[in-house]
Amino acid sequence: MPTIRVDGIDLAYEERGSGPPVLLISPAASRATLWELHQVPALLAAGHRVITFDNRGMAPSSCPPGPYRLADLVADAAGLIRALGHGPVTVVGASMGAMIGQELALAHPELVVSAALLGTRARADRFRTAMTEASAERVRQGAAANGVRHVAVSLMCQLFSPRSLADDATVADWLDVLTAFPITGEGAALQYEATLAGDRREALSGVTRPVLVVSFSDDLIMPPFLGREAAEAIPGARYAEVPGCGHFGFLERPEVVNRILVDFLARTATASARPTDAAGRP
Rank of each mutant, 00 (worst) to 15 (best):
L111I: 12
V112Y: 02
A115V: 11
A116G: 07
L117G: 00
L117S: 02
L118Q: 01
T120E: 08
T120L: 06
R121A: 15
A122H: 09
A122G: 15
R123M: 12
A124P: 02
T129R: 15
M131A: 13
T132A: 10
T132D: 12
A134G: 14
S135Y: 08
E137H: 13
V139Y: 02
V139H: 01
R140L: 15
R140F: 09
Q141M: 09
A143G: 13
A145Q: 11
G147Q: 10
V148N: 02
R149S: 08
H150A: 15
V151E: 13
A152N: 00
A152S: 01
V153G: 02
S154C: 08
S154W: 06
S154K: 13
L155I: 03
M156K: 00
F160C: 00
S161L: 12
P162K: 10
P162L: 09
S164L: 11
S164H: 08
S164P: 00
S164C: 10
S164Y: 09
L165F: 10
L165M: 11
A166D: 11
D168W: 04
A169G: 14
A169Y: 08
W174C: 01
L175E: 14
D176S: 10
D176E: 11
V177W: 06
V177Y: 10
L178W: 14
L178C: 02
T179N: 05
T179W: 05
F181E: 09
P182M: 12
P182Q: 12
I183N: 01
I183M: 12
I183L: 08
I183Y: 03
E186N: 08
G187L: 10
G187N: 10
G187D: 10
G187I: 11
Q191S: 03
Q191G: 01
Q191M: 07
Y192L: 02
E193F: 04
A194Y: 03
T195K: 00
L196D: 02
A197S: 14
R201I: 05
R201W: 04
R201A: 05
E202F: 04
E202S: 13
E202Q: 12
S205H: 14
S205F: 03
L212T: 11
V214A: 03
F216M: 01
S217H: 12
S217V: 06
S217M: 09
D219M: 11
D219S: 08
L220C: 05
P223W: 10
P223T: 12
P224W: 08
F225Y: 14
A230F: 05
A231D: 09
A231Q: 06
E232R: 14
A233T: 04
I234A: 01
I234M: 07
I234S: 00
P235T: 08
G236Q: 06
R238I: 03
Y239K: 04
V242E: 03
G244Y: 06
H247Y: 07
F248D: 08
F248E: 07
G249A: 04
G249W: 05
L251N: 14
L251K: 02
L251S: 11
L251C: 11
P254Q: 11
E255S: 13
V256S: 05
